[in-house]
Design a protein around this nucleic acid. Structure first.
Length: 653
RNA sequence: GCCGGGGUAGCUCAGUGGCAGAGCAACCGCCUUGUAAGCGGUAGGUCGUGGGUUCAAUCCCCACCCUCGGCUCCA
């Protein structure tokens, strides 16, 4: 007798397995089954069920089921590589989001080519056709080391696990210290693994190898570089096809591609890596973003400040940034009166503004705001369009407050941040609390505890779900990071709210409290866009280039049907420009259809077409982005509609 | 920084050890258009930069710059 997830029970003959249970329940289920969960432990379908156990069946179309498929496909990949490349060493091959990878070490530092990938994939298909069983065996460390005597990476994992030093990825590979488990597919191929796996390779097949990449063994930069093959695997042909289609769609939204297509900005090679110039069309969008940000900050009680791009090295010694981030800073300029660095952040300068004179508790919270441009020497291989760039502008704010004010201030900051993000079309957020990394931080335990508690309290007060990222804090304090979900469900980290007791200490910041005592303020670091460049890149991908009307570089384009109507079209343009809109016109020296097509490709929110009827009746034909054409619309009506659209910041898409 | 791919016209991309190519865009004509590509013509290149091999290099070799996919890193 076993108990099912719906709490019903089912009688089975003694020694029955998961697959027999699935068959007893239904044919469909048996076909989709890839593994079982017996009393909370994921197991192979072929494992005998214990009397009274709580059992559920994992099907291939669930997250857990796909995980099993992907991990099993990784084993097939390893087998194919070992067959095709003599002397190949294989290390680890986990399932990951949407797929799997496997890391290999090929003899003589050989690397995989794209052609190799094709051959490997063909060999994998043969292994699938052969329908090899996944046969589990458990054994002692000694036996396992013997089996894998030619596989040094496997031996290292076995030794780590049995010595109790294994981490989660090791455990995934080898099981526990008590018994090492392996899965055998054939006489010649066996892999270390905790499982579970599908019963046989015939259950697999909807996969594709995607790319080759270098990857460090155990993620250690100083360790050996392995060859990693990435693949994707799904429960059906259609699920695989959908995934590949999603990738294509994502590629069309790539902000680097859209930036070129839409003439928004560029990265001239002559400028150097990771440095962008903004073209007029990108520039107007950026200006609108900045204008909106300034307006909100003005209304939010922030004081605007400006600071220079360079500072004397002493400043960054005081702040501690030189100690922690010297490698990430542009190199120093030696001058006759000292050494100067381009600033990699704005906070120390804001501290100097605070410290310039004596402060009273009556001034707190003091909220300083700056669109501050900073320079960081990101390592060459890490640059990525606007998302990782060397010169960028932060919408940076530092709030100096008392410890008593801190929790309220953080709570209202959360409101402020979310309200601004919503205006830019984001509605789903994930929150992450990053805590102290003892090796990369300054300050006392007590201080860290107090600031972590304050952040936590603010999140709880808003009833927000959040995850904890251990040891991911900045060196000076813990933080809340806010991820947004974009239009196609991808997560982007944008905003950050950081608590800092350390910079006030280092800079000797003080205020005079009600009791006339000198006290140290708390400093909150806060960036909402993060960097304007990065935020812009995320917005570009979020909207796929189709910016909402309030942000669109050209909001309306007017097209005359024929040259005879150009004059009227110009009048329409003038009316709209007077109304404060960004409007242009393409004269009728080319086919109307062609001009419409060109304008659509530019993702202009509204295309107005005017002809004979419109000239006589003061109307326009409205062709909105993503909507249906309306003829004979009075111009005044269109302008009302436009004003509503812009006011509501609604994207016509 | 590390592993691997790439850099040819404004864009997307062919191509070859011996005169540099297409489509789109641009420009000039013709067409005067009613909702996603009308026709014809013209112009456009230090083939990323520097060095080497060669009678001859965009092509082969070396270095550097930029870029793409990952790894590592991200105040």
């Amino acid at each position: 007798m076993v108990r099912l997830p719906d709490d019903s029970t089912r009688e089975l003959s003694a020694g029955s397995t998961g697959i027999e249970l699935a068959q007893a329940i239904g044919k469909r289920l048996a076909q989709a089954a890839v593994a079982t969960v017996i009393d909370g432990v994921e197991s192979d379908l072929g494992v005998a069920l214990v009397d009274g156990a709580k059992v559920s069946i994992i099907t291939s179309d669930s997250d857990a089921g796909r995980h099993v498929l992907r991990h099993s496909t990784a084993h097939v990949l390893a087998q194919a590589v070992v067959q095709l490349f003599e002397g190949a060493k294989f290390s680890i091959g986990p399932a990951i989001e949407d797929g799997f990878y496997y890391d290999f070490d090929l003899p003589n530092n050989k690397t995989f080519s794209d052609q190799d990938l094709v051959a490997i994939q063909e060999r994998m298909q043969k292994i699938v056709e052969a329908d090899q069983p996944f046969v589990r065996a458990e054994m002692t460390t000694k036996e396992a080391l013997k089996i894998f005597k030619d596989q040094p990476y496997k031996c290292e994992i076995i030794e780590r696990v049995t010595k109790g030093k294994g981490d989660s990825s090791d455990a995934l590979e080898a099981g526990s210290a008590d018994a090492v488990s392996v899965y055998r597919n054939s006489e010649s191929f066996v892999d270390l693994c905790r499982g579970p796996h599908v019963p046989s390779t015939g259950r697999l097949g909807h996969f594709a190898l995607m790319k080759v990449a270098g990857a460090y063994w155990r993620g250690n930069e100083k360790g050996p570089m392995l060859q990693r093959i990435y693949g994707t695997a799904w429960e059906s042909k259609s699920a695989l096809a959908e995934h590949l289609h999603r990738l294509e769609e994502a590629e069309k939204r790539d902000h680097r591609r859209l930036a070129v297509e839409m003439d928004l900005l560029s990265f001239p090679q002559e400028l150097g890596g990771g440095l962008a110039v903004w073209h007029p069309k990108g520039g107007i969008i950026r200006k609108l973003m900045e204008d909106y940000s300034r307006e909100r900050h003005q209304n939010g009680g922030y004081k605007f400040v400006f600071t220079p791009h360079l500072a004397n090295a002493h400043l960054f010694e005081t702040s501690g940034h030189l100690q922690f981030y010297k490698d990430g800073m542009y190199p120093p300029m030696e001058m006759d009166n000292g050494t100067y660095y381009p600033k990699p952040m704005n906070c120390p300068m804001h501290c100097l503004i605070y410290r310039d004179r004596q402060r009273s508790y009556r001034e707190l919270p003091l909220r300083l705001f700056e669109l501050g441009t900073v320079y960081r020497y990101e390592r060459a291989g890490t640059l990525h369009g606007l998302l990782r760039i060397r010169g960028f502008t932060q919408d940076d704010s530092h709030i100096f407050c008392t410890e008593e004010q801190m929790a309220d201030e953080i709570a209202s900051l959360l409101d402020f941040v979310l309200s601004v993000l919503r205006r830019f079309g984001f509605s789903e957020f994930d929150f992450k609390l990053s805590t102290r990394n003892a090796e990369k931080s300054v300050g006392s335990d007590e201080i860290w505890q107090r600031s972590t508690d304050a952040l936590q309290e603010a999140l709880n007060r808003h009833g927000l779900q959040y995850t904890v990222a251990p040891e991911a804090a900045a060196f000076y304090g813990p933080k809340i990071d806010i991820d947004v979900r974009d239009a196609i469900g991808r997560k982007w980290q944008l905003s950050t709210i950081q608590c800092d007791f350390n910079l006030p200490e280092r800079f000797g910041l003080e205020y005079i409290a009600t009791d006339n005592a000198r006290k140290q303020p708390i400093m909150l670091h806060r960036a909402l866009f993060g960097s304007i460049e990065r935020f812009f890149g995320v917005l570009l991908e979020h909207y796929g280039g189709a910016f909402p009307t309030w942000l669109a570089p050209v909001q309306v384009r007017v097209l005359a049907v024929a040259s005879a109507h150009d004059e009227y079209a110009t009048k329409v343009v003038e009316r709209l420009v007077e109304g404060g809109y960004r409007v242009d016109q393409l004269v009728a020296d080319e086919q109307l259809g062609k001009r419409i097509r060109a304008s659509k490709l530019e993702r202009i929110p509204y295309i107005l077409v005017v002809g004979d009827d419109d000239v006589s009746n003061s109307t326009v034909g409205v062709n909105p982005r993503g909507g249906d054409v309306r003829r004979d619309v009075p111009l005044t009506d269109f302008m009302n509609q436009l004003s509503i659209d812009v006011g509501q910041a609604k994207s016509v898409s």
